[in-house]
């Protein structure tokens, strides 16, 4: 169970990115965060693993307030929280293997890791993870030589190396075409269902939200404006939709879900 209480983030330039946001995510949930660009989705995800320090509020996870952690405590908490990114954030000039193993850095001793030395168990784990993602034959290629879909699988592999209990995914498919988007989200769904990993994922595509979410929250200008279950989102009305995405939002997809290929919100 992760519980966000009155989370507020004001950037140095005065931008109010998150405004008193509170919600909770039971373990094993696949929570999808929707909202316009700039609505605070990325800030929210980065506050949870403290890539961004929240201005106010609490993030209670396993009884600990993540917002208050510092130093080693913070790093220990972080290594249990995997994260995948919109632009994959791989080190493009390192190999897939090194990128994957870097997910293990939180568990490694500093100096051997600096020399790219990892334990045998870590290496075996990396192979198993790459195998699970179906990219074990790419292990010795440079990350930049891979296609977008493959790179994101490396991103997921890196996160899985952390033995995470929580997975944050910041628009993990926004840089990919719809077919690849499904394949990546299916990997996340697998992790959610088989490994019972809690997933918090921000998305842009409504049909993907309707397909994969077990619950949904909506942000608009940093405020929580929508909270619903899988059922709710499938019955979402245009009114609610515009409430999240603003008046200028157009829903170009057919609202019937079956067989809709597009379902992209043109914003």
């Amino acid at each position: 169970m992760i519980e966000i209480r009155n989370l507020t983030k004001i950037y140095e330039d005065g931008t109010l990115a998150l405004d008193n946001v509170s919600f909770s995510v039971p373990d094993g949930e696949f929570l999808i965060v929707i909202g316009l660009s700039g609505s605070g989705k990325s800030t929210l995800l980065r506050c949870i693993n403290r890539l961004i320090d929240p201005t106010e509020g609490e993030i209670i996870w396993n009884g600990v307030d993540l917002a208050k952690l510092e130093g080693d405590d913070l790093r220990r908490a972080r290594r249990k929280i995997g994260m995948v990114f919109q632009h994959f954030n791989l080190v493009e000039r390192s190999t897939v293997m090194i990128n994957t193993l870097s997910g293990r850095l939180g568990y490694s001793q500093t100096w051997p890791a600096l020399l790219h030395r990892f334990s045998k168990q870590d290496k075996e784990k990396a192979w198993r993870t790459l195998e699970r993602m179906g990219i074990e034959d790419q292990a010795h290629k440079l990350a930049r030589e891979l296609s977008g879909g493959q790179q994101q699988r490396v991103g997921i592999s890196r996160a899985l190396m952390q033995d995470p209990e929580l997975m944050l995914a910041d628009e993990p498919v926004a840089s990919l075409d719809p077919v690849l988007a499904h394949s990546i989200l299916q990997h996340l769904e697998d992790l959610n269902q088989e490994d019972e990993l809690t997933i918090i994922c921000s998305l842009h595509y409504l049909d993907l939200v309707q397909r994969y979410a077990t619950s949904v929250i909506g942000l608009r200008e940093g405020k929580l404006v929508y909270q619903g279950t899988k059922k709710d989102i499938q019955m979402m009305t245009d009114e609610e939709f515009k409430n999240i995405y603003g008046e200028e939002a157009v829903r170009i997809s057919d609202t019937s879900l079956e067989g809709s290929v597009g379902g992209v919100l043109e914003l």
């Binding site: 972080r78 290594r79 994959f88 954030n89």
Partner: peptide, 26 residues
């Protein structure tokens, strides 16, 4: 690219590891 630095930071790496894995290869 700040992306890889952010990603390595998110794994719980310390400062040296972030520099070695996120900055140096770039």
């Amino acid at each position: 690219d700040p992306g890889p630095i952010e990603a390595v930071q998110a794994t719980g790496a310390n400062w040296f590891q972030i520099v070695m894995y996120g900055v140096v290869p770039q």
